[in-house]
Nucleic acid binder design. Structure first.
Lengths: 254, 254
DNA sequence: AAGTGGTCTAGACCACTCG
DNA sequence: GAGTGGTCTAGACCACTTG
């Protein structure tokens, strides 16, 4: 009698606090995620059916489904009709979900060291104006930062921002990071349009990054939008490929 | 009396077919997406409240919510409590969602021309064995392909696959593409772990891509997993950065 | 105060998978 | 045939935003 994979029962300590302001489905999904993360729910194991799980927790089935669905969307669980819900077993799960690509978005500037080289207002070039959706030659913030790791330059970041969004203090930029500052200013980030490429370093880039002219560089351009569709940031970044690469996990949409 | 933005009413032809096997929420989300795409729902316009929409269509509110939620997940709509549901206005919406990164996953090989250079079995190296989760020196498929655009080489793709998954006919590979073949073989793709970087071309790479030695190349490595967590493909790709870059849209998770 | 989305319930029937 | 997830209903109360 071959078991499907792992343990079909769930003898897990799950409970919800109805007096908490945290939604019930969210409490459940957090507990399940934690159980997966620290191994209480092993890869391939079945979760037990939704009805029984709902009964055990005193929840309705839709609430339990909502919790499970959020983990399916994260790629941690897989549902199969007629079979059940299983924990995905993918090698190296945790550390790879939020990696550099998103990390840049989430915690830009959080790295060991970031040095602000330029923080000024400039008239928008045609390219910048088009990206940010502002008038050409109107003033925009221009920030240039050097990111260091272990004392070595890793990346050179050049960003443009509209002037009416937030204050950009150099000290805070180095301590807090750009994206965190935008969030604190009440900006709700929604999406970003990215382009990743490569090219040989021109003289000034080579000097900034302690490379030689013509050395391969990894490049990234990004325009970030808030939830009203307004462009809130345009960035042109160059990375030393020996020190940095983009690593991330991609979920295939069903 | 300043309107929030756009038209707060929805005078749209929406209807569902209850005799169809297509789920009601999916019928609705498709119609809404189509309306957004061809401009019937303009960016910034409000969708009208869920209750009224449900009543108008003869659906329950949860069903309408499910339809709306799927479009929120795609980044096409934004919900604000106390306000309503609005169409996001982001510049260039359609063509950028499925771009090269996913395109590679979805339709690899669909490009103007793909030439299969190598299609053979080889013993797995340590790196390949680790990526695919097979024993070292056990046989694996090795495929090398040259991708051309307008007669010029654009990328060189080297892929490894376990032997027990599918047949790999060279003709079909050139006509259909690797990912399509995997799907046809009943493999449900789930996620991929990617790494994008850059480096100078070594001699053999330079020759393949008609570049010079040391020229900057864009590189991508990927391991793809099916929904059981099994590694189904490992690929090492090199791109000519003057002909190819990775472009994609990133949604910020709430 | 009115209107919106956010959450939740307690059922129901169906489609699919598997033994 | 038994068990699973997939879909759907008709309500309910709450939290938040806005005028």
């Amino acid at each position: 009698m071959p078991k499907p994979d792992g343990d079909p029962t769930v003898s897990l300590e799950l409970s919800v606090d109805r007096s908490s302001p945290v939604p019930l489905y969210f409490q459940l999904s957090q507990q399940l995620e934690a159980a997966i993360e620290h191994g209480a729910l092993t890869p391939g194991s079945l979760l037990g059916n939704e009805i029984e799980l709902a009964a055990r927790l005193g929840l309705s089935r839709p609430t339990v489904r909502q919790a499970i669905q959020s983990l399916v969307d994260k790629g941690l669980l897989v549902r199969r009709r007629g079979v059940g819900t299983q924990v995905v077993h993918s090698q190296v799960k945790r550390p790879l979900e939020l990696s550099s690509l998103y990390d840049d978005l989430e915690a830009a500037g959080q790295r060991p060291a970031t040095k602000v080289i330029v923080n000024t207002l400039v008239p928008a070039s045609a390219e910048v104006a088009a990206a940010l959706g502002v008038a050409e030659d109107s003033d925009v913030h221009r920030i240039e930062r050097l990111r260091l790791a272990h004392g070595e330059p890793m990346a050179y970041l050049c960003n443009y921002l509209p002037t009416d969004l937030l204050e950009l203090e150099t000290g805070q930029l180095e301590a807090t990071g750009l994206y965190r500052m935008m969030r604190s200013a009440g900006i709700t980030l929604h999406s970003a349009r990215q382009s990743i490429g490569a090219r040989g370093a021109i003289a000034v880039e080579a000097e900034r990054l302690a490379e030689e002219e013509g050395a391969p560089l990894l490049t990234m351009q990004r325009v970030t939008f808030d939830d009203t569709g307004r462009a809130v940031e345009f960035g042109t970044h160059t990375y030393r490929p020996t020190r940095y690469s983009f690593e991330f996990q991609l979920l295939v949409r069903p």
